[in-house]
């Protein structure tokens, strides 16, 4: 099981800014290990963010996204105490969901 995401969601002047730091190797499939065997690709493929059960962002990631992916975005609305849920799925079928309260 992957480590928890670090999520910050801050509401200011009617706009909520969300920042997410995921913990994931994001292996491209291009690299080789010390004995020359290719390291299989292992990366997040899909991500979605929901604010009170309404999807505010959905994303697809390829192997070009950096290790431990960072994502920031903004949406209108959102008040202090609202629930924000972020989940991802990777190409091996692993997944992770974390939630925070908007501050």
């Amino acid at each position: 099981m992957a480590s928890p995401m670090r999520i910050r969601a801050a509401s200011k002047d009617g706009v909520t800014e969300v920042r997410v730091l995921m913990s994931h190797p994001m292996e491209t499939g291009q690299r080789k290990d010390s004995s020359g065997n290719p390291i299989p690709a292992h990366h997040i493929t899909e991500l979605s963010a929901k604010h009170n059960d309404k999807v505010v962002l959905s994303a697809q990631f390829g192997p070009s996204v950096s290790t431990n992916p960072y994502l920031a975005f903004k949406f209108k609305g959102g008040a202090s105490g609202d629930k924000l849920v972020v989940s991802w799925v990777d190409n091996k079928g692993e997944s992770r969901t974390d939630e925070v309260q908007v501050s």
């Binding site: 505010v56 962002l57 950096s66 992916p69 920031a72 903004k74 209108k76």
Partner: peptide
């Protein structure tokens, strides 16, 4: 080539940041 794609529903701003290799 394609690093990431984002679907922006109504109400979300077209303003995204990430990090790529």
């Amino acid at each position: 080539m394609l690093a990431a794609s984002f679907e922006i529903p109504e109400g979300t701003m077209a303003d995204v940041q990430t990090r790529v290799k």
